[in-house]
C-alpha cells in the first residue's frame, strides 16, 4: 500500500538556521532516506523550492489564469514529500515520525488511491 508523506514546515525556521545547523538537518535527512531505501519502503521523495517560487494555475472560461504564490496562505508550507510503500497505516505513521521535520512541523500521511478494475 502506497502512502504520500507530505512535509509541512515553516520555511523561515530552516532559513534562519546557521550553516552548521542546516548541515546537521541535511545529514539527518540523508540518513533517514538511506534507511527507508534499504528497508524497501522508499518509492520517491524530493525537497521543494520555497513557496516564493510557486505559481498557482486555474482554468477559467477556457483561459489559463496564473497567480503568484501557493494556493493557500498558511504558517507551514509544503516543503517536500516522500512516497513510500508500507504494509499499513501504523507502519506509515512510524516512518513519518522518523522524518526530521516531524519534530518541528507536520507530516501529513495520505493513502494513495487504488483503482480497481471496476472503478473505485
Amino acid at each position: 500500500m502506497n502512502y504520500l508523506l507530505m512535509i509541512y514546515e515553516n520555511e523561515r525556521l530552516m532559513n534562519d538556521m546557521s550553516p552548521e545547523e542546516q548541515g546537521r538537518v541535511f545529514a539527518e535527512y540523508h540518513a533517514f532516506t538511506e534507511g527507508i531505501v534499504k528497508s524497501g519502503h522508499f518509492k520517491a521523495g524530493d525537497a521543494l523550492q520555497p513557496v516564493a517560487t510557486a505559481t498557482s494555475v486555474r482554468v477559467k472560461d477556457g483561459k489559463v489564469v496564473t497567480t503568484d504564490g501557493p494556493f493557500a496562505e498558511t504558517k507551514e508550507q509544503l516543503g517536500g514529500y516522500y512516497l513510500i510503500d508500507a504494509k499499513d497505516l501504523d507502519e506509515a505513521i512510524a516512518i513519518a515520525a522518523r522524518i526530521p521535520a516531524a519534530r518541528i512541523g507536520t507530516v501529513e500521511v495520505r493513502p494513495v488511491m487504488v483503482f480497481d478494475q471496476g472503478g473505485m
Binding site: D88, D90, P111
Partner: peptide
Amino acid sequence: AAAKIPYRVP
C-alpha cells in the same frame, strides 16, 4: 479501509 488502519493488537 482506505488508509488501511490495521486490525491488530499493538
